[in-house]
Nucleic acid binder design. Structure first.
Lengths: 214, 214
DNA sequence: TGTAATGTTTACCAATCGGTCAAATTATCC
DNA sequence: GGATAATTTGACCGATTGGTAAACATTACA
């Protein structure tokens, strides 16, 4: 009897662990580009190198695969923000936060795009997580930033929009990668663009453009 | 004979103009949320309030609708950058560019999302336009910014990444609208968030966070 | 007002969609 | 090695996909 689906067994088989990993890897490939609606189970099965029924043996539905991916990404995606230290030095904390987010954009662009796709669609699968855990974490860190501003350690600014601007500028290099490459052209589109971006962004957030006021 | 499709006639009928507008409006609704692959012709037909064959009388294929939308958006989307004036004052030029891009994110969020969806999918329909006209325009404006830096009017910085950062921070309020609302919560998610963002971003780009160096 | 061009609809197509089922195959464990 | 559970497959399902054919209705224009 092949009724006991993967989810039902308490202890996961070696094969289960391996195959589920292969499937999620393939699903990430496809979902991150085409979004949930634009992705077909057959596509995932082909990338994963297994038959569709076999794939559906491990994940009952397309939604189950998507949900598993989103859950995983949501957790790791907020790691850098969690590491934001209230007792640290404002400059080094902000610098290292930018650097970490930029490294994630470079090393995990598919995860970034999966998340971006979900946002574009109005977050139908994760709106609760946004309003709950995400908002709570951001509220906490925003309070830290506000305290720094009150203490005169950094300029007074809206801490929420500060966080938004770090998110958007860094993730841009994953989500809009094609555009970045196209605009930079052959000359500058080498892998050095992430170092250039890091240098520019750290300067922007720390010093701004230092426009000379006449 | 109903063979002469809309495209074939030289002069467009009143009905053609009206219906094509209705269709593109509906298509923008659906494409901007679900992306190209995730959108069905039936969805567009329903939103447009007409039958599928009738819709396909004006646009032969799903691709034709998408192409028409992309072309239109690509042009208007670059208006603010074209308006960027080499002879203007650096501070006011950058400030007004930010303001204009933010207004577009507020007033045309669907257009922003349509473009974002296309980028996430690797720009399969517009890669040529990116490498051609877009790159040319950005190259031109980047040269202006570089000249300002050389003249000591603004800090030395990578002009391309400067432009990227303005694009990403402003479009974020359209593309990630759900997330922004969720994080800001009921209290601050009123329509004032665009003014808050404008104030914050203008400060960021002009002065940075003015971190006190110990 | 007549007629030709334009516009709309119903019925339909093959291909693909997400997912099921039972049979066949393979791994596990006593 | 044999029983039992886990895994894999091919055949298949009804629904939906993008798009077509042709009959029908409406408009524009002489």
């Amino acid at each position: 009897m092949a009724i006991p689906r993967a989810a039902k067994t308490q202890r996961r088989t070696r094969i289960q662990e391996e195959k589920e990993e292969i499937i999620l890897e393939a699903a990430l490939d496809v979902f991150s580009v085409n979004g949930f609606r634009g992705t077909t189970v057959d596509q995932i099965a082909e990338v994963a190198g297994m038959s569709k029924p076999n794939l559906l043996y491990y994940f009952r539905t397309k939604e189950a695969m998507h949900r598993a991916l989103i859950d995983r990404v949501l957790f790791t995606w907020l790691e850098p923000l969690r590491a934001f230290d209230a007792n640290g030095n404002p400059e080094s904390e902000i610098r290292s936060y930018i650097r970490r987010k930029l490294e994630m954009a470079r090393d995990f662009p598919r995860e970034s795009r999966l998340f971006a796709n979900e946002m574009l669609q109005g977050a139908p699968h994760v709106e609760d997580e946004l309003r709950g855990p995400l908002k709570a974490l951001v509220d906490e860190k925003a309070e830290v930033i506000r305290a720094w501003a009150t203490a005169g350690k950094i300029a007074k600014c809206d801490p929420y929009h500060l966080i938004f601007s770090i998110w958007s500028t860094t993730q841009h290099y994953a989500d809009f990668d094609v555009q970045v490459r196209a605009v930079l052209g052959q000359e500058h589109a080498g892998e050095g663009r992430f170092e250039d971006a890091a240098r520019y962004l750290e300067q922007l957030f720390v010093d701004g453009l230092r426009i000379r006021h006449n």
